[in-house]
Design a binder for these strands. Structure first.
Lengths: 403, 403
DNA sequence: AATATTTTGTTTGATGAATTAACTAAATCA
DNA sequence: TGATTTAGTTAATTCATCAAACAAAATATT
């Protein structure tokens, strides 16, 4: 199985076959377990064609026969099941301060985890860390590897696997995909972390049947978003679609490193939260964070989360402030793109409803009233593994056509 | 020839054939005139297959043989040409105060125009006006009609041809497509006017080779935009993608009919321009518009345009004001979607650079610096016919696969 | 209990769209 | 004049889906 068919190209019989093979595998993946006869009914292909393709999938070990089903009348159908253990995936999240890697099966279940701290490692030596991580995971693999998926902050050209720029790692125009494919001889797919998080939300969301478009906003030390149109990541002309971190939300706001005032990232990220919280906690002796703030330690978002969970009343207003700025930016996205489903992820999402409600309020306040009841904003349920899940989704999508 | 193949469906031989037929016709359309041998080289199909399909296209009269080309050596190739006169199209623009209809050939060249004033006609009687317009154009047709394309303000469900809501015409959930198809027995395609304008910009733009994504902002009495992703209109979950008229750009701005303050439409449309201009002209005796404004006539955008062309210095600041608000909204779109090509259309676009420059400045001022030199904002070159051209593009796209 | 019915999955032959390869046509090159 | 090159057609081949018949295994009916 290989890459997806491009649009303005000739069509051939081989592509028809490939398309149907992917289509059948995807249907098995989604409806597992399912019989050949049901596949024929669902796909509108004939039982003969289904049997033919399924034979190939059994041969490749991607599908198993798992016994017979009981029906009221007629020969009992043989149930087919997607063999999630047929291959394994290596997936990486090159987050800000530590690289995390996982070994997974074809359903995205994580079997092994590895972390490497990369505080001051940048440029070449950061690439070495990536190789090291993959080596370590490869050694643990018990099944053939389907591919390597990598999510990283920065602007990535996904089709060629080139990191156009990743400021925190000091990479620019780095052909990471080719380098790793040459080294490991396995397909490598790379994309921006927020874009991958959105893809994960799409693929691993329970009610994905009906959802074809979504936006996921990832709020952590940076802010980015990923846009899914028709089940695919929308990359934009310069591969930086969804990079809303530097949209100006308050022209009178604080100066950002990018040169503008009041970028979303300076106003609503966890870093902004820490700064705001530190000021307020220092000024407010009744805050649970008062001592820590006065001690000169920069407040970490974990501290703030803990204080919030312990019902510290000084936290809520600061979260609300971030929420309102986020809501303002999201309102523009929703209004412009008319996308119904919005998800919030990243470390800031741990604040849950405290963050979600002000976002909702601000979005509603700024949106066209007729559209408001169509908008559904939720905290993502995929947690801290969302980026590696998205990296897995990317590999699964390209290698097996599972979308 | 019929509708495009959907994504999650089985693939068949017939679809392969259809795809290649459209692909070949599209190539002839774009490279006109071209030989069978060149088609084979471009499409990677064999000469045998090309000859087979071209025979069908000649039979349908969509393509003509137009003589031989001279080459240095070998048998001279027979040149094929797209027969733009093989069919005609009826296209309508149901603009605010008058309906305009055109009869066109397959390249979008307009051969006949009809206008109907519909000032107070709404609901049922507005539908009658549409039928009347089509009847009139149909009578003028000299070739078989390929289809009817309609652009209208409002929220349209394009695949079913349903007008979900068109406030100015007082239509809601009107199955206009079915009604007209039943009446005229010709394929009918309907979409939002700004979305169609964007499609027109995509299809009739001279350098469309490289441009796959674009946004077109249509600024007239209302403000809307159309988004093209990968050569197709992006409709959004509720078919109102691009409806940026009611994005709040100034929370302290004037109250809009939608209930919010400072919507883009209340701040930057031609109506806003008229109001602003009237105030300024009344207060400023040296303005060429002073007398007209004092006479109590509401200033029409035509008046303002004329004054501007006569170098009335009081006009520029008002246009700039609109431009800055538009720029602010566009900056969000550009930042979020990373789309490089932005076009300004609609009656406001007639102000040209006077409007364009403040838009550019505001977009640049608010955009991530690394992206600024990627952004290309232009006034659309398609003029007042842009919506009917888009309607033609819609019909051509669906019926013949020309994109 | 024997037979009919229903449903599953396979087998066999037909269909048809693209390909391969051979062929004809018409020009230039040597 | 004959060789070479390129264009376009024709005939045979390929192969993925389809259609129809068939075998297998259950329940339903008599």
């Amino acid at each position: 199985m290989n890459k997806v068919i491009s649009a303005s190209q000739k069509a051939t019989r081989a592509q028809t076959k490939e398309h149907n093979k992917r289509f059948i595998l995807k249907t098995i993946y989604e409806r597992d377990p399912i019989s050949r006869a049901d596949l024929a009914r669902l796909t509108k292909l004939t039982r003969a064609s289904i049997s033919n393709v399924v034979a190939a999938l059994l041969e490749e070990n991607l599908v198993h026969e798992v016994g017979l089903a009981k029906k009221s009348v007629g020969k009992p159908p043989t149930l087919l099941s997607f063999n999630k253990s047929a291959r394994q995936l290596i997936t990486l999240d090159l987050a800000n301060d530590q690289f995390r890697g996982c070994l997974m099966n074809l359903r995205g279940d994580i079997t092994d985890r590895v972390k490497i701290s990369v505080e001051e490692q940048r440029g070449e030596s950061a690439v070495d860390k990536v190789v090291e991580l993959i080596e370590e995971l490869k050694a643990k693999a018990t099944e053939p590897l389907l591919g390597i998926g990598i999510g990283t902050p920065g602007v990535i050209e996904p089709y060629r696997g080139v990191v156009k720029s990743a400021i925190n790692l000091n990479w620019s125009d780095l052909p990471l995909g080719d380098m790793l494919e040459e080294r490991f001889d396995i397909p490598v797919y790379i994309a921006n972390d927020a874009q991958l998080a959105a893809l994960a939300q799409y693929l691993f969301s329970p009610d994905k049947e009906s959802i074809k478009n979504l936006i996921l906003v990832k709020v952590g030390r940076g802010i980015g978003s990923g846009i899914i149109f028709g089940g695919e990541i929308f990359f934009g002309d310069g591969f930086s679609a969804g990079e809303i971190g530097h949209v100006v939300v308050d022209p009178n706001g604080k100066l950002c490193t990018c040169g503008h005032n009041g970028c979303l990232e300076t106003m609503a990220s966890t870093r902004a939260l820490s700064e705001q919280m530190t000021q307020i906690a220092m000024a407010n002796p009744s805050s649970k964070l008062h001592d820590k703030a006065r001690a000169g330690h920069p407040l970490h978002s974990n501290d703030i989360l803990q204080a919030h969970q312990e019902k510290d009343f000084t936290v809520q207003p600061v979260i609300e402030r971030s929420g309102r700025f986020l809501g303002g930016a999201i309102a523009h996205l929703v209004g412009a793109m008319n996308i119904r489903h919005i998800y919030i992820a990243g470390s800031m999402a741990r604040f849950g409803d405290a963050l979600l409600e002000p976002i909702r309020q601000e979005v509603f306040r700024r949106s066209y009233p007729a559209l408001i009841n169509q908008i559904d904003i939720e905290i993502s349920d995929l947690g801290a593994d969302i980026v590696v899940l998205g990296a897995a989704a990317l590999v699964l999508n390209f290698e097996l056509g599972i979308v």
